[in-house]
Simulated assay, not measured.
Amino acid sequence: MLDDVNQLFDFVLKESLGSATILEDAFIQSAGHINTIAKLQTNKGVFILKWNHEELSPYKEEFKGLQLLDSLSQFKVPEPLHFGSNLSVNYLLMEFIPETPKTIKFWINLAESLATLHAQSNTHFGLDHDNYIGALPQSNKFHDNWIDFFINERLEPQIGLAYYEGLVDLSYLKNFQRIYPKLPTLIPKELPALLHGDLWSGNILATGDDMPALIDPAVYYGHREMELAFTKLFGGFESIFYATYSEIFPLQSGFQIREEIYLLYPLLVHANSFGPSYLTKVSHILKKYLG
């Protein structure tokens, strides 16, 4: 296995950076459910390599997402260098960004940069190509309004997958779909906003000078309340972040009343990716809004 990994490292480095690239050291940073991630020290610098053995590879779309964020935001993002497949392995090589502790100034800068990102708009909700959230395909077909996009490209694919995989039965599926007619009265209209798409604490980094960096994008033009709700899924960010964002780009009133609606999507993604335990929270949210 070690020989296979070293062979992968050698192939990717030479394919991406040239035959003169020499691997000096390698550190496995994580080996999760979806990706294995290694830090590669070379004679040409330090890089991050992600790889997996999935039938569908998300790395082409991640490459494009990083490029899009780099071109349209103030965030630092790791420069994507090369993606491809070798030895039945999908891989993505990118720039390594050293991390620093997250300070109060970092959270303020994060809020300012996110508000600027969300100010980037579009004529429709969606994106000109589909991508992935985690290992699951994410449809970004264009829609004129957020409710149609949210239902047809976010909620329906995930609850449908959960039903197909046997995580929920038909009665659960039909009860879930009862939320759809209520959405127009719950969610206010806004212009499409450019979103990172998977903004939780694990996908933000603090870099030098307290500046924020983003990784693992699932970008599209959506409702910015979706992004703010995402940040609260696993504990939330520091309070100064939300206060600063609200000063720059205030949300419409009542966000705290409706924010859990947006969590139905990531919770279903996690249920389909990691197991049915996340459905308990989904059921709680449905009961809250359906009675």
Rank of each mutant, 00 (worst) to 15 (best):
A38D: 11
S246H: 13
H143L: 03
A206Y: 06
L69T: 06
Y180V: 10
Q74I: 04
G18T: 04
Q138K: 01
G134M: 08
P181L: 07
A218H: 04
N272D: 09
G235A: 02
F75V: 02
L136F: 00
L263I: 04
E190T: 13
I248G: 02
A193W: 08
Y262L: 05
V269T: 05
P192K: 03
P188N: 08
L69D: 02
Q67M: 13
G32H: 09
G254H: 03
G235L: 03
D210V: 03
M1L: 11
I22F: 14
F9N: 14
H196M: 11
V77R: 02
S277H: 07
P212T: 06
T207V: 12
L8F: 03
E153I: 03
V77C: 07
S85R: 15
S239W: 04
H196L: 10
D25F: 10
E227R: 02
I22N: 14
F75G: 00
S121Q: 09
N90S: 15
Q120L: 11
A218N: 05
A243C: 06
L49S: 08
Y265R: 04
L23K: 10
T100L: 08
L268W: 07
Y265K: 04
N203S: 14
S85E: 14
H124S: 08
D10I: 08
S88Y: 11
K60L: 14
L68R: 09
